[in-house]
């Protein structure tokens, strides 16, 4: 799969985790692609850490508002019903449990749902930003990531080796080849991408996969 198509595959599947009326937060990277796969009649509200609730898509050129950006600095639009809050209230939404679902990328994620996505000691340490609060407090946390890193190592592992963003915080993992659910017993393989065999998923995953009684579905 080309880079674009595997990212779209992940984003399209992730969009199914959003339903009417939900308050959602998108992290950087693949999560920013999810919204375009939702049908326009589904009304949901995108939260951004900088205090916007009800963010729409990116602006058309020439329609940028210097006072209206997302948490990554991109100029955005608003949807009807949007609101602004200060940083304290914006994070009260997060820590108070008002984010229905959040989507984050991962450097590593374990079968138990531990997430590492913010620091590579000695290489990359730009600060935690809002990720730790989102990971720990979103009601439902979906990790969207490519299944393996650039060196083909599994990103889904038995134990994370990098410092954690959050422990046992991940509810669902969506990659270009599989949808998996961390459970107390281990990682449950819920769905396999069309055209991919179970054996390939097993080989490319760094922890044991449990199968549901009815077998994994397809996506």
């Amino acid at each position: 799969m080309s880079t674009t198509s595997y990212k779209d595959k992940i984003a399209a599947r992730a969009a199914q985790e959003i339903s009417e009326g939900k308050v959602v937060n998108f992290g950087i990277g693949i999560p920013t692609l999810i919204a375009k796969f939702l049908p326009p009649e589904v009304q949901f509200f995108v939260h951004a850490e900088n205090g916007v609730l009800g963010m729409g898509g990116r602006c058309r050129r020439g329609e940028e508002d210097r006072n209206l950006i997302d948490a990554g600095g991109a100029y955005v639009e608003l949807v009807p019903g949007a609101s602004f809050a200060d940083s304290s209230v914006s994070f009260a939404m997060i820590r108070g449990g008002r984010l229905d679902v959040a989507f984050l990328g991962a450097l590593e994620v374990s079968g138990k749902g531990d997430l590492a996505n913010w620091i590579i000691p000695g290489k990359y340490a730009p600060g935690i930003g809002g990720a730790m609060e989102v990971a720990q407090k979103a009601r439902r946390l979906v990790v969207v990531t490519n299944h393996n890193d650039r060196a083909d190592n599994p990103k889904i592992v038995e134990e994370c080796t990098l410092p954690l963003t959050g422990k046992s915080c991940v509810d669902l993992i969506i990659t270009e080849i599989a949808v998996m659910q961390p459970t107390r017993r281990g990682l449950l393989l819920l769905e396999i991408a069309e055209g991919v065999e179970l054996e390939e998923v097993r080989q490319r995953t760094g922890t044991e996969l449990l199968l549901p009684p009815e077998g994994p579905g397809r996506f």
Binding site: E49, S88, S90, F91, G129, E133
Partner: peptide, 15 residues
């Protein structure tokens, strides 16, 4: 020197 905090915790420290 840089001291990092989770974003909402920084806001709450100030609050």
């Amino acid at each position: 020197e840089v001291e990092f905090y989770p974003q909402g915790i920084l806001a709450e420290k100030i609050r």
